[in-house]
Design a protein around this nucleic acid. Structure first.
Lengths: 138, 138
DNA sequence: TAAAAGTACATTGAATTGGTATACATTTAA
DNA sequence: TTAAATGTATACCAATTCAATGTACTTTTA
C-alpha cells in the first residue's frame, strides 16, 4: 500500500518549485530533487497538462508554478501522476462469489469500507498544501 | 495505492470461513473464493502462523477460524499477508535534499502527513470485523 | 538561424506480484 | 500398520507494473 516513487518525485518537484519561486529548467530541477533528468521530464509533462505548473520554451525557458503554492494540494499532485486513489480493485465491481449452504451470493464483503478508506485518504491529502512550512493547518 | 490481490484473497478466505462456520479443506475453499489452490495454500499458511485460522491434518482435515469472526479485523488480515500499512517509503528516512539559495536542507516535506494517513487507514481497517453482516458498526 | 529548451513516443531494465512445482510431514480411517 | 488424504516448506518461474532511458522532433529566442 504505497504511493509510487513517481508520485513521490512529483511532490518533490512541486515542492522545489514552491520553495524557490523562480523559473527553473529541467536539469536544475532534476539535480535538486534527485530525480533523473529523463524521468523528471516525463513527470513535468503530466504536471503541465494538469495545469499545476507552466513551461516556457526557448533559451531562457524552464518551469514555474502555474498557480500559488498554497492552492496546490498534495492530493492533486499525487492523483495527477498516478490516477485516482483507490484501495481495492473490486470497488465498484461486485464480482466474486462466496456462497455455500444458503449463503446469499456474496459480492465483495468490504466494498463499502474500501470506498470509505479511499475517501478518507483523498480528503486528507487534498487538505494538505504546498508553500506553508510549519503551521500548515489552515 | 492498492492493497495487493493477495490481501484481497486472504480477506475472501477468512470471510468464507466466517460465513460457513465449518471446517473446510483447501480445495473447497479455493473453489469458493476463486483463488487458485496453490496460491490459497500459501495464504492459508500465513493466516495459520498469525493465529487467525487453525489447520487440521489428516483425512478429515481442513481449516477453521481459530477465534470468533467478530474478533478478527480486516486490518489484521491485510497486514498479515502484506506487512504493515505504509504510504510513503521515505517515512522515517529523511533522505532527499531540496535546497537552493538559503533553503534549509530539506527532508521529505510531507513525512508527517504520510504517517498520519497511514495511521488513519490502519485504524479504520482495524475497526472493521468479520462475521457481522448488515449493522456492522459496533 | 542555431542552440537551448521542452515534447512525444517507444523501448529497455528491474522489482514486485501472482502463481506453480517438487518434495516432504502428519494424521486418521480402514 | 499402512496408504490415502490432508497440510507444510522451499524454491522456482512467469507476468505485470514500475522506473528509467533512447531517439527523434518541435518550439522559442538570443
Amino acid at each position: 500500500m504505497y504511493i509510487t516513487l513517481e508520485a513521490d518525485y512529483a511532490v518533490r518537484i512541486v515542492d522545489c518549485l514552491a520553495r524557490n519561486a523562480i523559473r527553473m529548467d529541467a536539469k536544475t530541477l532534476a539535480a535538486h530533487t534527485g530525480v533523473t533528468l529523463r524521468f523528471s521530464l516525463k513527470i513535468l509533462r503530466k504536471l503541465v497538462a494538469e495545469g499545476i505548473i507552466r513551461s516556457y520554451k526557448g533559451t531562457q525557458g524552464g518551469y514555474e508554478l502555474a498557480i500559488p503554492a498554497q492552492e496546490i494540494s498534495l492530493g492533486r499532485v499525487i492523483e495527477t501522476v498516478e490516477g485516482p486513489i483507490i484501495i481495492s480493485r473490486c470497488v465498484g465491481h461486485e464480482e466474486y462469489v462466496c456462497s455455500q449452504s444458503g449463503g446469499k451470493s456474496g459480492y465483495c464483503r468490504f466494498n463499502k469500507t474500501y470506498t470509505e478508506v479511499a475517501q478518507m485518504v483523498r480528503e486528507r491529502l487534498y487538505r494538505e498544501h504546498f508553500g506553508l512550512e510549519e503551521g500548515q493547518e489552515e
